[in-house]
Design a protein around this nucleic acid. Structure first.
Lengths: 161, 161
DNA sequence: GTCGATGCAAAGGCTTTGCACAGCC
DNA sequence: GGCTGTGCAAAGCCTTTGCATCGAC
């Protein structure tokens, strides 16, 4: 269950941007809340959990939403939000860097990718998380996240084989 | 226990290059066995399973071993050997592309990476493989490989926290 | 001897950075 | 009003590609 950050007053829908907590997090680091940063985070929150975008895709979507943000700022913001723990960078095979909304739910969030056409499915499996935790604690590590990348052939590509 | 590939005649140490099967695989594709290709594959075989290198590292190691191979050829060869299924490209967080020797053993070969210092441990866990197979077949996919990337903090970095 | 592979260097993406201006606090 | 963030464009990796030569078959 996702823990509410720090908004005890009103119950708000999960897809809604949370400028309050974003501002607070930024302020703790001596940084500022700008429309660009709200836009980027809001974009991911609007997508919902588990959806991932490349820097270029973020840029295009923001332009499409009439939000004037430069690509350089998109890169800077993605890095900032990742370092704040609000976004997470993920590794997909043969692709590029992508980012998605961070959250406890993502500690058990995995990818099934077709090695031929790139089609991607997502799934969860608590046993994977358990295995990750076992491996981490077995080596004295503290788990941050675990991601299972399953590389496979999708039905369409099997048929074309 | 690693299964022997296809050398029923003599028991040879697993670290030995196998020019015969490499030549055969290349020949099937109308391609040639060159010293450079032997060198690159031999380097990985000499490392043993589960060790991974970037293109730059491959190049440096070959130069150090007095093998004159251009970086462009390293890139071309890594791609070729990957497409032949002899090497596999893997995705590590915050790093770059890396390659490792392919093999059945690697379908259950996972990484525990410190998100701060990059320290990497490797481990196996059959339950992870089972989860990957379940996910693949559940979506109609045919499993190629599954890799669990566990991002965590290592003991040293926890202490410096 | 033929046709593919290599080496070199230039081109190509994607990402980061320097600097002056704009805007949050 | 100070100081951080932004936009623009140039610089920087890493990787791929064109072309003449070399070498495996």
């Amino acid at each position: 269950m996702p823990s509410p950050s720090q908004a005890p007053a009103a119950a708000h829908p999960p897809l809604q941007p949370q400028p309050t907590s974003l501002r607070a997090s930024l302020h703790d680091r001596g940084q500022r809340l700008t429309p660009q940063r709200q836009r980027v985070l809001g974009l991911f929150e609007g997508l919902g959990e588990g959806r991932h975008l490349s820097a270029e895709e973020v840029h295009q979507r923001l332009l499409g939403a009439q939000a004037r943000v430069s690509l350089a700022t998109v890169y800077r913001t993605l890095r900032l939000l990742s370092s704040m723990g609000l976004l997470q960078e993920l590794e997909l095979p043969e692709g590029g860097r992508r980012f998605e909304l961070a959250g406890d739910a993502h500690r058990d969030h995995h990818h099934l990718v077709c090695v031929r056409c790139g089609r991607t499915e997502e799934f969860e499996n608590p046993q994977v998380l358990a295995a990750g935790e076992a491996a981490a604690s077995g080596h004295g590590f503290r788990l941050v996240e675990c991601v299972l990348n399953v590389r496979a052939l999708c039905p369409g590509c099997i048929a074309n084989d």
